[in-house]
Amino acid sequence: MTSGQTRQHRPRAARKRPAEPVTITYREAMRAAIREALQRDDRVFLMGEDVGRYGGCFAVSLGLLEEFGPERIRDTPLSESAFVGAGIGAAMGGMRPIVEIMTVNFSLLALDQIMNNAATLRHMSGGQVGVPLVIRMTTGAGRQLAAQHSHSLEGWFAHIPGLKILAPATLEDARGMLWTALADPDPVLIFEHGSLYNVSGTLPADAGPVGIDRAAIRRPGRDVTLISYGGTLGKALAAADRLAGDGIEAEVIDLRTLRPLDDAAIIDSVSRTHRVVLADEGWRSGSLAAEVSARITEQAFYQLDAPVQRVCGAEVPIPYARHLEQAALPQPETIAAAARAVVG
């Protein structure tokens, strides 16, 4: 069976009138997305460590086992390579698995399956075999989990051809990216920053799938472009608030999709503001921020009025002590300071 097959899905029930917005957390929005996918497509199932009885290490799948049963909400042994590999096999066989890796740190145990298998099988089968697999994982630091449980490795994965990499930073994207990812014929990795799960806000009750191929302007401005994504977006927006107090109007770009990058949106903003600060929790050397910076230099060098600045995670294993960890990560203050420096 090839992955090209599709099945008729039930059309969504027509709504009589626009529903009232609902207050919802990022965690609940993600859960609503998983629930919708399970309801809409019987090929979808969720698999991972502690996703069933425990409801997920970050409580994303709480209640789904009771709702959908153990065939579709599958607790696995502590075998990352096995359950990612099995997800690849299921996807090749026509299913639409959502594999949850507890955190990005544990994805390293499945790296061969992700990189050497999921990402390459379409190419190495001459287009015969696709892997329509979605892998969700928590990423990032900030919760006192120390050096082995605080990585931001989405930039690594964004290095790999064959994969699509998403970083939902908003409630809309937490709610909407999953379905679009499941509809994609190729493997899609979704990175959920651990600091976002408790973030609360409102969503239209009929919020649904969103595109996964464009960056978004989260705050318009004319003086400097702050480029960020995922868990650092909120810090960039907080920095923009501070800058506004100094009379600096910062534009904040949310990359949303880390591979492929939306060059046009980046270059368009830079061409209007002429100054850029990149905020990325990943380590600076060889980072996603380095890649974006290189593209700006390649495509908009003559638009720049100041060198591109990066605010990244300190190049140390992430400390465990709270105050050290906070000092090792980009913060609104440090992003704002970099912005002030380029605005001059």
């Binding site: 460590e49 502690d50 069933g52 009885r53 425990y54 290490c57 607790d75 696995t76 042994p77 502590l78």
Partner: peptide, 10 residues
């Protein structure tokens, strides 16, 4: 118990 995974899951 491995967090929530009982022995029969291992």
């Amino acid at each position: 118990w491995a967090i929530s995974a009982p022995l029969e899951k291992q």
